[in-house]
Computed example of a mutant assay.
Amino acid sequence: MTTTLVTGANKGLGKETARLLVAAGHTVYVGARDKARGEATAEEFGARFVQLDVTDDASVAAALAQIEADGGLDVLVNNAGIAKRSQSGRAEALDGPSALEVFDANAVGIIRVTEAALPLLRKSPNPVVVNVSSALGSFWAVHEPSRPASRFPSIVYGSSKAAVSMITVQYSRAVPEVKFNAVEPGITATELGGGGAGSHPGRPAAESAEIVAKLATIGPDGPTGTFHEDAGILPW
């Protein structure tokens, strides 16, 4: 049995990724800050709940200790992430505290959780880490006129996802016994964009979750140090 932790999994992309992995036969931990919402999500499709705030060292340590006590971990999906809007809601927040908050959740949070998870992952016969990134963090995509990322300025969020991409590459080099890959899930209608699925563009989270789940279910001969989207490899 494969045991998987999905961070930020009580809604949106994380929730749908967790749902797909349960359907694939994984024992899935729904990592979420909100206990009530996380428990309700886990109960909805037969997952387990673990309280987890990726910006809090003690929370991360406690969550991974619980998973270790339950038997260990094979797959980590670093999905939790945020974007911050200005007070008007019409643009990205570009003040220092907001930028620090975004980087802490989106990039530093991956390091926190990954470091806490590595002792468990190293005991797995097929350890896998999937980092949810974005085409906005691809230097190629933001320079390629045919890509939406080249027409969507995103100073803080995009930069935080570029950090996610580099974190993925560096971990794949530093920890070769674990497979690390980044995923671009596509433009998805979730609250991350600033509203509900009916208020802004993007495909359903359930559809975007398919590529995340695909990379979370690779075998021992699967790739590492790569960036994937639906169509295949995405240049960094």
Results as ranks from 00 to 15, higher is better:
A32M: 03
D34N: 10
D34K: 00
D34W: 00
A36R: 04
R37M: 12
R37Y: 05
R37K: 15
G38C: 06
G38L: 09
E39V: 09
A40C: 03
T41V: 06
T41S: 10
A42E: 12
E43H: 11
E43C: 02
E43K: 15
E43I: 02
E44V: 09
E44I: 10
E44T: 13
E44R: 13
G46L: 09
A47N: 03
R48K: 15
F49E: 12
F49H: 11
F49R: 07
F49A: 06
Q51Y: 04
Q51R: 14
Q51P: 09
Q51F: 00
D53E: 13
V54P: 02
V54M: 02
V54W: 00
V54T: 10
T55F: 02
D57P: 02
D57L: 14
S59H: 02
V60K: 03
A61F: 03
A61K: 12
A61G: 07
A61T: 13
A61W: 00
A62R: 04
A63M: 10
A63K: 01
L64N: 00
L64D: 05
A65F: 11
A65C: 10
I67M: 09
E68S: 15
E68W: 01
E68A: 15
A69L: 06
G71N: 08
G71Q: 10
G72S: 06
G72T: 06
G72V: 06
G72P: 08
L73A: 01
L73M: 00
L73S: 00
D74R: 07
V77N: 02
N78W: 05
N78Y: 05
N79K: 00
N79G: 05
N79M: 01
A80I: 01
A83Q: 14
K84N: 11
K84W: 04
K84T: 13
Q87T: 12
Q87G: 15
S88I: 01
S88W: 10
G89E: 01
G89K: 09
A91I: 00
A91T: 11
A91Q: 13
E92V: 09
A93L: 11
L94D: 09
L94G: 02
L94M: 08
D95H: 04
D95Y: 08
G96N: 04
G96A: 14
G96E: 14
P97M: 11
S98D: 09
A99I: 11
A99N: 04
